[in-house]
């Protein structure tokens, strides 16, 4: 057993040293602490950051907690990132207030902080690279309204009721409907943790309960796929609007099962974050708010090179 323990430690360290070798080659190191790392969206942000790192000749790392609820795990990651004496830090806060002591520490150590994705409620970050989620969801509401003819019942399947993106997309959609389309009724808002299977079950129960439902908005990739699956299993024809991209959503839009979706510019978020960080290190000027934009895409423009560049598989 003693030997095994040792072996494990040696293997762990060996793996660690082997995998980390490239990092030590870097002069300028910028860790990005994100809200997650498993979803395709975050992988796209990561690839944007890596692209920028290559273009600007810096080294980046990218990590985030397993779920968006793990606020304290993210704080630990931020602490470890700071311990590595980085040149700058990119940070997408799960909870801004919880991170403030560490952000102050970064400020004291003169490490520039660039916020990305949903931003940080603090004046410490020098810039924020993000999508305006509320506006984007409002666009989704407009599209939904025109696709169902301006009246009828619709529903939402949202990934989370506590996270900023969940709240913004939900409220952005709901407020737009309430303000502009009095004949459209929102009959149900349900939360599926962004899990495809859970969202599928939720969708089926919504459809069972509302035989006249005309459309559902899935507020992130997992939710949207769940909505599609649920409608398919019950053989119901409804207008499905999604969010973000990914292989399945793209295929569904091409085949017409999904009317369309909002895409952010995740690659751009990653790229712009690193770009702003490098500018901050060099003392160059940059915008405080970096709107990375969002776009509606459907069957008609999915292969448009401008859109296709924003989509990920």
């Amino acid at each position: 057993m003693f030997k095994l323990r040792h072996l494990a430690a040696v293997v762990a360290l060996g793996t660690a040293v082997g995998l980390s070798a490239p990092v030590f080659a870097a002069d300028t190191y910028i860790p990005l602490i994100s809200k997650g790392f498993q979803h395709q969206f975050w992988q796209a942000v990561k690839s944007g950051a890596e692209q920028a790192a290559k273009d600007l000749n810096v080294k980046v790392t990218f990590e985030g907690p397993e779920t968006e609820a793990m606020v304290d795990k993210q704080i630990d990651m931020l602490a470890a990132a700071l311990a590595k004496n980085p040149a700058a830090i990119g940070f997408a806060a799960l909870d801004s207030q919880a991170a403030i002591p560490l952000l102050k520490k970064a400020q004291a150590a003169k490490i520039p902080v660039i916020a990305f994705d949903s931003g940080v409620d603090s004046d410490i970050p020098l810039a924020t690279a993000a999508t305006n989620n509320a506006l984007a969801a409002g666009l989704a509401a407009d599209k939904m309204a025109s696709l169902i003819g301006g009246e009828g019942d619709v529903a939402l399947v949202v990934h989370d009721q506590t996270s900023r993106t969940g709240i913004d997309r939900r409220d952005g959609f709901v407020n737009q409907i309430k303000a502009k389309y009095p004949k459209i009724k929102i009959v149900s808002i349900q939360y599926g943790a962004g899990d495809q299977l859970k969202s599928t079950e939720i969708t089926k129960s919504i459809l069972q309960a509302n035989p006249n439902l005309k459309g559902i908005f899935g507020a992130n990739e997992g939710s949207a796929i769940g909505v599609l699956n649920g409608a398919k299993e019950l053989k119901r024809k409804i207008v499905v609007i999604g969010y973000d991209s990914g292989k399945q959503q793209k295929a569904a839009i091409r085949s017409g099962e999904m009317a369309g979706a909002i895409t952010q510019n995740p690659v751009g978020i990653g790229y712009k974050t690193v770009e702003a960080a490098v500018k901050a290190i060099k003392g160059e000027k940059f915008d405080k708010v970096i709107d990375t934009g969002f776009y509606w895409f459907d069957k008609s423009n999915i292969d448009d090179p401008k859109i296709a560049a924003l989509l990920y598989d």
Binding site: M70, V71, D72, A98, I100, D160
Partner: peptide
């Protein structure tokens, strides 16, 4: 530590 009670945290 987080200066807040995070209701969604804890599972896992």
């Amino acid at each position: 530590r987080l200066n807040s009670a995070q209701p969604a945290l804890g599972q896992g």
